[in-house]
Nucleic acid binder design. Structure first.
Lengths: 339, 339
DNA sequence: CTGAAAGCGCTAACAA
DNA sequence: TTGTTAGCGCTTTCAG
């Protein structure tokens, strides 16, 4: 391994000078500068980031904590983070928690060990409050992405879930629906809460009843949604909703498959709106109406925010960025009520 | 920040002793050990990984270089890497190249800077040969995952693409097809080459002709596949293939959509087999027959291999791990020829 | 304008 | 059985 010493020797200058030309951090005479640059070139020298990091007490690395990169929601968010990080000269380490407590503890350890300068947390659940609170109090840079936590004073970047679900409900209502169901997701997340509450609010505002048996908890899972939907379709028509707002596109797909497997039609017998607008929602044979979440932007802004926070010396108030959602209308929401 | 010195002082021992108990690297009397542990507890001490890394000349971090985490092929592979890395106490940094030269150069820089101990490269194309060759010669640990590069003497973990495409072609033949097309992908990759060559071999072995106009290059893209497929469907029946092997499931979806948009049926008018077996392939309304690639295992084995290589002192011959594929038969491949 | 040297936090060789 | 200390590669203060 070639070090700064080798360069100094080879160029006939001190290590200080080498460092100064490399970092452009004080004047060095053209001749010496040239000699240094040439030595760097000849010996193919690259400064060691670890040594640098030890001095500078940073690593130019961010940690992205998510539950599961395999969940199609996250890759876009991760990419947003990575692009923003890269643009600022930061690397991004990926930390899947698989929703396991042990894994989130390990993630948090990374910042204490100094392996990362900040943490972007996209998997926050209520239970993490304590562990994160501690981190925040100790002054570690943290930002919550996508999911936030009540009572945690910290930067966050989230989608406007309230607006998103409201637009879905209103759209159904504009089509003439009055019996609208909601298939909810993982209970402990802010995302689920906000969408659920938004649903209830929108329904109530429109003077429409909330039927408990139409509020199905699917944990965001295709199969559970399939089952719940199949159950719903067994009810007589008057007992069934005519439309359903789904926690995500997987759930929506589960509903659609169950409806059609029981011989009914989407949207005629059951209109469906999903959430997230994943790739497949736009394909010819799915054509799922869905509330688009700006996943990439969430990741990007979160990374920018935390980098800003890391580089800024004085502290500032935690800020909350809320990004707009958009209802993307396709076929599964239908043109109106059919009977 | 609390350092080893603080612990030493607080426990009334030397820093060496602290280090020794923390790493269990030489005998320390029970009393002193206890005092140290207690100090660690009280001051909430966590050893600094950067300082450690500087000494040890490693970072316990792996770099995963891929073209685009947003491509649904990669998240599983990434997760396999992460799980294996985590199990061995390594972190994983994600490096999206977006197929840009500048980005791969940056990725390679990471290892030279000492930010990562090894690189798992899942985005290798022919053009990278030079840059990677150099790295290998300098002795940096590298493993190729999914895609390999000809003439590069280095560990690799890939799927048996040859076997995969052969099973697809044979299956079509067993169903009575003789006019079989192939929709290929990105030219520069080993994956594409192997599947293409495998296709040609399997067809030739069966005495079936290869029609150049049925070998469509789609770059693995849904839309391009859609267009190419639409063109094919404009031909009179005798000029059309009755079945098509697709480079990946996106391409297969594009074909299916185009076929049906032109008023034809899958599999009756066109039987389809995809590659990768992504999530949506298994859903009710897609039911795509597809060649499953063990994505998670590829990532997992690649990470294990490189960790092994990093930790082993003496060098060993580069090894190549080839994992089996599996044809998952669903609806789109049909039961046989229909007219 | 340039260099010597301290020191970032840790490990481990050497000494006692 | 334990402590002292050099040194990992780099930046930056201090002195010249």
């Amino acid at each position: 391994m070639v070090t700064i010493k080798d360069i100094a020797k080879h160029a006939g200058v001190s290590v200080a000078t080498v460092s100064y030309v490399l970092n452009n951090t004080r004047y060095v005479s053209p001749q010496r500068r040239e000699r240094v640059l040439q030595a760097v070139e000849e010996l193919n020298y690259v400064p060691n980031a670890v040594a640098r990091g030890l001095r500078a007490r940073n690593t130019k690395t961010l940690g992205l904590v998510l539950s599961d990169i395999t969940n199609p929601f996250f890759p876009d968010l991760a990419k947003g983070c990575e692009d923003a990080a890269q643009a600022a000269g930061f690397s991004l380490v990926m930390l899947n928690t698989n929703e396991q407590r042990e894994r989130i503890i390990n993630a948090v350890l990374q910042i204490r060990e100094g392996k990362v300068d900040g943490l972007i947390i996209a998997s926050a659940v209520k239970q993490d409050l304590g562990i994160l609170q501690e981190l925040v109090l100790e002054g570690y840079p943290i930002v919550l992405a996508h999911r936030r936590i009540q009572d945690l004073q910290v930067d966050s970047v989230v989608a406007d879930n309230f607006q998103g679900v409201t637009s879905a409900v209103r759209y159904f209502i504009s089509l003439g629906h009055t019996r609208i169901a909601m298939f909810t997701g993982v209970d402990e997340t802010s995302v689920n809460m906000e969408r659920k509450e938004g649903f209830i609010k929108a329904m109530t505002d429109a003077g429409l009843p909330i039927r408990q048996e139409w509020m199905c908890n699917t944990l965001g899972d295709y199969q559970l949604a399939y089952n719940a939907s199949a159950n719903l379709m067994r009810l007589p028509w008057e007992e069934r909703p005519t439309a359903v707002v789904c926690m995500n596109d997987m759930v929506a797909l589960g509903v659609m498959d169950a409806v059609e497997d029981r011989g009914y039609q989407v949207p005629a017998d059951m209109a469906v709106i999903g959430f997230d607008d994943l790739f497949f929602a736009g394909t010819q044979r799915i054509q799922l109406t869905s509330v688009r979440i700006p996943r990439y932007e969430i990741g990007q802004q979160a990374a920018r925010l935390i980098i800003d926070r890391i580089q800024r010396t004085k502290t500032m108030e935690p800020m909350e960025i809320v990004l707009p959602t958009q209802l993307v209308v396709r076929k599964t929401s239908g043109d109106g009520i059919y009977r």
